[in-house]
Structures are given as structure tokens and as C-alpha cells.
Amino acid sequence: MKNLHGDAKDFLMCCGSSKFAAEMAKSAPFSSLSQAVEASRTIWWNEVDVPGWLEAFTAHPRIGDLEALKKGAPSAHWSKVEQSVAVETANVTVMRELSEWNQKYEEKFGFRYLICASGKSSAEILANLQNRFSSRPIEELQVAAGEQQKITEIRLGKLFADRDSFSQTTANQRLGQVLGHIGSSVEESKVSLPSHLSVPNQISPTRPPITTHVLDVSRGKPGAGIPVTLELWNVPSKGGESRGWISIGSSVTDADGRSGPLMAPSSNVMAGRYKLTFGTATYFQNSNSSDDTNGTTQCFYPYVSVVFEIKPAQVSQHFHVPVLLSPFSYTTYRGS
């Protein structure tokens, strides 16, 4: 198995903390990408202090800062690739709002807004920035540090892909599929890579981070055929104008009362307020026509909406939000 080498300058491109880069160089060479990633986690969370974290944050160009992306910093090319989807999906209004919210964020927290931008649109990033703005400084510092570690792991994969003589295009495509969304809200793909570039402890998510099912307690059976929608609350813009709910996905419950996927499978979910809406009137109308009730069972709630909040510290958890339903009442809880 080939050893993976790197000096402090190489590791500084992966993470802008000089302490991190120096400690990684001391730990090199690595027998695999897995070993390098594990070392990076240990160093980042146990040996790099808060000033080192802030140094790393500052090394990144601000999200949406096109001029900074054009500059010739050693990692500028990687930043440009990582923000490519955001740049391609942006318009003048979104770019202006990103700039305004970046400024507000830095004024509140004292450090640069950071997100693992790979695969994320400008609208997704703006919504994430706005949602995180309400966090407490100590919570936000931890979240930003976690985003930096995601970026570091992606870049370690790219660094060692280059060392293994992959073409830059092939390396970006193949490693992007496996590493590009580590811990992000984008579905991961299974790709065959050389053994020394294996990803440590990464299992592709098999379910969305938010799921639900319905049980009709009046009939003692699953609530099948119920329309379900999932929405995310978009925080007010700088002028204070509310934008309301943003649709994420919709489905219909199956024979077991479980909804189909309302969002892509992922190990993480964006912090914020979510709303599940169930089309109960449609369900009871269809049930009355199929049951021997002569249509006498009425529905008091034409629909049921369940609003819940996911905190920044909970973004790696799974949220199962079931509903126990009858024509005149409903109950909800957080399941597992």
C-alpha cells in the first residue's frame, strides 16, 4: 500500500490553520486516506484552539465573493469548484443578499460565515446563513468548525488523488461523488476507488433525515393514501419582509401509513423550523367511500399541520414525526 505524503504547505491548502497544517505534517506519511482523515479529526478537535479555528475560517473567500474566487491563492481553485453550483444558480438579487447577510453575520459573531458549499445552490446557502444567524455565538462557532472539518476531508481526498496521479478532472468527479458531501444534506454515491483512498466509516444514508407515518386510531389501521407535504420556514429578509414557507417535498402515505421520501437521504439536515401538512379531509373522504359507513364519518380537521424546530446542535439527528389520527382529534410526537 502506497504511503500518502504531504508537507505543511499541502495541508494548509486543506485547512487554513497553521497549527493544523504543522501537526498534520508531523503525522505524515499516511498509509491511507482513511488514516489521514482520522488524524485530521483528532488534530482539529483536540489540538487546534479557537484562534486556530478562526484562522482557518478567514482563509476561505466569503460565499459568493466572485472577486476573491478569482485570486490566485493556493486553494482558490478548490474554493471555486466548491462554490460552483452556488455561483451558477445565483442571480443579482441573491448575490446581493448573500453579501448583506455575510456582513450581518460577521458583525454579530465576529468571524466569517462558513459552510461546506459543495453541491449547494445559492438559495440553499442563503437560507442556511439566515437560519444560523439566530444561533448563540458558542453554538455557531461549533457549527462553523464542523463545516470546516467537512471541507478539510474533501480537500484531503483531492490532495491525495493528485498524489496518486489521477487527472484533475477524474479526481474531482470520482472523489466529489464519494467525499463531496460528507456530512452534508446531499445524497452520497457509491464509487469504487483504490483501497488506499477508501473513506473511513462512511455509509451512504438510506433514509431522509425527516420521516413520518400516520396511524388511523379510529379504524385501528395505517392511514394510507394521505397527501403529505414538507416545508421549511424562510426567515425574514433584511428589510423585515417575511417570505413564508418554502416547499421541500411531497408524497402520499403507502399501505403501511408511511410517507415516501420528502427529501433526499442524508446524514444531516439544515437547522430551522419545518412543517408537515397532512391532507386529512382527502383521506377521510376516500375512507368513507370505501368503508361501510354510508359517508357518516365526518372530518373536523380538513388538514393537520405539525410545526417543529431543529436546532443547530441537532442537525446530525434523525427526526421521525408520526401522527395518530381520528376524525375529531390527532396526536403527534417525535419518534425514532
Rank of each mutant, 00 (worst) to 15 (best):
V143L: 09
V143F: 04
V143T: 09
A145N: 11
E147T: 05
Q148D: 08
K150D: 03
E153Q: 05
E153I: 00
E153Y: 01
R155I: 05
L156A: 11
G157F: 06
K158N: 06
L159W: 06
A161C: 15
D164K: 06
F166T: 03
F166Y: 12
Q168H: 15
Q168L: 15
Q168I: 15
Q168E: 14
R174L: 14
R174N: 08
R174Y: 12
L175P: 01
G176N: 05
G176P: 06
Q177S: 12
V178M: 08
V178L: 10
H181G: 09
S184I: 04
S184P: 13
V186Y: 00
E187W: 01
E187Y: 03
S189I: 11
K190I: 15
K190V: 12
S192V: 14
P194K: 07
S195N: 13
H196R: 08
H196F: 15
S198H: 08
S198D: 15
V199D: 00
P200M: 14
P200L: 14
N201T: 11
N201R: 13
Q202A: 10
Q202I: 14
P205S: 10
P205F: 04
P205G: 07
P205W: 02
T206C: 11
R207D: 15
P208N: 03
P208H: 01
P208I: 07
P209T: 15
T211M: 03
T211R: 06
T212D: 06
H213T: 15
D216W: 02
D216R: 00
D216T: 04
V217T: 09
R219Y: 02
K221R: 14
A224I: 04
I226F: 02
T229H: 11
T229N: 11
L230G: 05
E231Y: 08
W233V: 01
V235S: 12
P236D: 13
S237V: 13
K238H: 11
G239H: 10
G239D: 04
G240S: 08
G244D: 07
W245F: 08
S247H: 15
S247D: 15
G249C: 14
S250Y: 06
S250M: 03
V252H: 05
T253N: 02
D254M: 09
D254E: 08
D256C: 09
D256Y: 04
R258G: 14
R258C: 15
S259I: 01
G260L: 13
A264G: 07
A264Y: 04
A264K: 11
P265E: 08
P265V: 12
S266C: 15
M270Q: 10
A271L: 04
G272Q: 05
R273Q: 07
Y274V: 05
Y274I: 05
L276E: 01
L276M: 07
T277L: 02
T277H: 01
F278C: 02
F278M: 04
G279L: 08
T280G: 07
T280V: 08
T280L: 05
T280W: 02
T280A: 07
F284A: 03
F284N: 02
Q285S: 12
Q285F: 12
N286S: 13
N286Y: 13
S287Y: 03
N288S: 13
